[in-house]
């Protein structure tokens, strides 16, 4: 995994609540057996019409909005456990997703792919939408080390939570499997001492 660096970037606003993983990547694109190529189908049904032409009213097709940060409405990533959703978001080029609330599985999947989910207050979130509405080139700065996000239009800043272990993983580009494998002895010891084993 790539190391996570501090990002200052314009952002793409998606002020819709309960964006589920079926919207992020519809099931018919899940037939692949590799992790690559999902970015092209990110939000496919909102992004393309039946003939596969870009729908001009969808934000990803609006050339004034771009950036490495996606800012979305409350309860982002609910529904299916498909990690393809995280692959699609990462594949498209997003490194950070900002929302006021994330579904659990999506949050884990994002972190396992070096994508940082940033939880902000509802007020901070609506301010971000307002800022990009006024100025599509508005930027945010996300600093993982300090655990802060700044709306550079207004200068407002918020801190966000992340557990220390995951923070280290992201900053150093490590993944959980390395960690688990280094713990084999403990796993074997656990199996031996279990009171009831299936």
């Amino acid at each position: 995994m790539e190391k996570f660096q501090t990002i200052t970037s314009t952002y793409v606003p998606l002020p819709i609540e309960n964006v589920d993983t079926d919207q992020i990547i519809p099931a018919r694109f899940l037939k692949a057996t590799t992790r690559e190529g999902f970015g092209d189908n990110l939000f496919a049904d909102w992004r393309y019409d039946k003939e596969g032409n870009p729908k001009p009213d969808f934000v990803l097709n609006n050339p004034v909005y771009s950036g490495q940060v996606l800012v979305a409405g409350k309860n982002f990533g609910s529904g299916s456990s498909r990690e393809h959703a995280a692959w699609a978001i990462g594949g498209y080029g997003f490194k950070v997703v900002v929302s006021s609330f994330f579904a659990d599985i999506f949050r884990n999947n994002a972190l396992n792919n070096g994508i940082l989910p940033v939880v902000v207050s509802e007020a901070f979130l609506s301010e971000l939408f307002a800022s990009s509405n006024k100025n599509p080139k508005a930027t945010v700065t996300v600093n993982l080390q300090e655990q802060t996000i700044v709306n550079n239009e207004t200068g407002n800043k918020e801190s966000f939570e992340i557990n220390a272990y995951k923070k280290t993983c992201l900053l150093e580009g490590l993944d959980d499997i390395d960690f688990l494998l280094s713990n084999k002895n403990k796993i074997e010891a656990f199996e031996k001492q279990r009171e009831y084993s299936y």
Binding site: S81, E83, A86, I105, N108, N112, N113, D176
Partner: peptide, 13 residues
């Protein structure tokens, strides 16, 4: 439910 990276973790450990 878990994601694919986690499936790999379970298979591996």
């Amino acid at each position: 439910g878990i994601g694919t990276s986690e499936v790999e973790m379970v298979l591996a450990s």
